[in-house]
Simulated assay, not measured.
Amino acid sequence: MCLGIPGKIVEITDVESMLANVEVSGIKREINIACIIETTVEDLVGKWTLVHVGFAMCIIDEVQAKETLLALETMQALDHEVNDFSAVGQAVGDK
């Protein structure tokens, strides 16, 4: 399964190599933006994008980005709950 994580482009780091920093939940990473350039590289600063394995795959709007981040956070919380439940089940089965 491929999963794109929403990130906001906060700065262009290398115009020639088409690299930019994106921020995802407070963490900045350098990604390749070659697939999403429509006009100039500088026009991408402030835009939201779906990031997959270090590449910006497409531009998304801010509402869509925030909804996706919320859904991912909710899934992570659910995953934590399932893991806790599984640990309890194993402890009960061990007795």
Rank of each mutant, 00 (worst) to 15 (best):
V24D: 06
K95G: 14
G7N: 07
K28H: 02
S17L: 12
D43K: 06
L19H: 06
I33L: 05
G26C: 03
K8E: 14
E81K: 07
T49I: 09
C2W: 06
A65R: 00
G89R: 12
G93H: 08
T49M: 11
S86Q: 11
R29Q: 10
G54K: 01
E38V: 11
Q64K: 07
D61W: 03
A65Q: 01
R29I: 12
F85L: 09
K28I: 15
E16R: 04
K47Q: 15
L50A: 05
G4Q: 04
I31S: 11
I36Q: 08
L19Y: 09
D61F: 03
I37L: 08
D43A: 07
A56H: 04
V53I: 07
V15Q: 14
G46N: 14
P6G: 02
Q90F: 03
S86D: 05
E16V: 09
V88Q: 14
I31Y: 06
N83A: 09
V45Y: 05
C35I: 05
I37Y: 14
D61Y: 02
K95T: 06
Q64M: 12
G89M: 13
I59R: 07
N21R: 13
S25K: 13
D43I: 04
A71Y: 01
G54R: 00
V22H: 11
E16H: 05
K28D: 05
V63R: 00
A65N: 00
M75A: 11
M75N: 10
Q90V: 04
T74C: 03
V51M: 10
G89A: 11
V45W: 09
A91V: 00
M57A: 02
L70W: 05
E11A: 10
E81S: 09
K8D: 07
T40P: 02
I27R: 10
E16K: 09
K47H: 13
V10G: 13
C35F: 15
I60P: 04
A34T: 05
T74M: 04
